[in-house]
Amino acid sequence: MTEPSSSSRRRLAAASLAVTAALALSACGSSDAGKPSSSDAAAGDKTHTVKTAVGEVKVKNNPQRVVVLDTAELDSAITLGVKPVGATHTTAEPGFLGYLPKDKVAGIKDVGEMMTPNLEAVAALKPDLILTSKVRHGALYDELKALAPTVMTENTGYPWRENFQVHADALGKKAEAKQVVADYTEHAAKVTDAIGGKDKAAKTNVNVVRFIEGADIRIYGKQNYIATVLADVGLGRPAITDKAKDGFSYDVSPEKINLAGDDADVVFHSTYGDPKKAKQTQTLNSGLWKNMPAAKADKVFGVEDELWIQGIGYTAAGKILDEMQSHLTTK
């Protein structure tokens, strides 16, 4: 999870200036364009109330034109069998996270970069539900709710399980969500068994390191998405994770990267952005990195940032569990 910077918030607020045009666009065109049949309209009139971070919101029982503005919401929708009509992307280049099945994201309209969604593009899709969070788009709530009922969670990342339940409620998929959770719980238990059981898992200290272009190196703490997946398997965490700011991450320079491996049996690492600019290249080639106990034991594994860090959902978590089991059972 990447927290929005002050500059991102300014860009987000500036994006709201486009909302007048967006609303005008949504009102244009033939009154018959996309008009549902009388039976569809009757079914669409039925609503239910969802408790959100911005209060109670009435949404259709079976929304058909869903727009999601962050990766967790996209994962939730895909996991629950709903293909959104629109979604944002996370990087400078368009496109959705690579771990998602191609057929599940084919045809979804890209409505801009995650922190600065194109409101005109959103309006043009005539959504009947928008899913996002306050931490990402709280400044745009009034504009978004003018386009469609907007369901916001408070945050993203660490509370992903609770957020998933909110998404499921909004999408009218609470029964499906119950099965998803049951399947994931069973999956995590099988991974624990595969790596030697609960006692061995608890004695295996695992760190997750993220190299980020334009920022310090993150050693992830215990209050974030990937930490919850590690905890579900029952894995131990090194002492350095207790120093993480707000439980999220302990940030270091390449000169202090040894702190990531002093008492870690296994280290997973990912990179966001250009490897050189993210200091990944120089760090992985340094003596401090190569002399970490995990590195000497061949227990350092590079993983995809899109999956392990950006995904934030049950579809991502299931794939992470599979990769985790493969790495942790490697002799």
Rank of each mutant, 00 (worst) to 15 (best):
E73G: 04
S76Y: 12
G44W: 07
V57T: 12
V68S: 02
I78Q: 00
K58Y: 00
K46L: 11
K60C: 11
D70Q: 11
P84D: 11
L80P: 04
V85H: 03
T49L: 09
P94F: 06
D45K: 14
A92M: 07
A92C: 01
E93K: 14
V68P: 01
H48I: 07
K83I: 01
P94I: 07
Y99V: 05
V68G: 01
G81W: 02
S76A: 14
I78W: 00
V59L: 07
R65F: 07
V67K: 03
D75R: 00
V66I: 07
G44N: 15
A53E: 09
T71H: 03
P84S: 11
L80T: 03
R65A: 11
K51R: 10
L69V: 04
A43L: 09
V85M: 11
A72P: 03
V66W: 02
F96H: 03
V59P: 04
E56K: 15
L74P: 02
P84E: 08
V82E: 05
T71P: 03
G81A: 07
G44D: 15
L100M: 11
K83R: 13
Y99A: 10
Y99C: 10
L69R: 00
V50C: 07
D70N: 14
L97E: 15
Y99D: 08
A53D: 07
G98P: 04
P63Y: 11
A77Q: 04
T49I: 12
E93G: 04
L100D: 10
A53W: 05
K46T: 13
E56R: 12
S76D: 15
A43H: 01
T47Q: 13
N61D: 15
D45Y: 06
D70V: 00
V57A: 08
G44T: 09
V54Y: 06
E73Q: 13
V57Q: 12
Q64C: 06
V66C: 06
L80Q: 07
E93T: 14
A92K: 14
G86F: 03
S76I: 01
L97G: 04
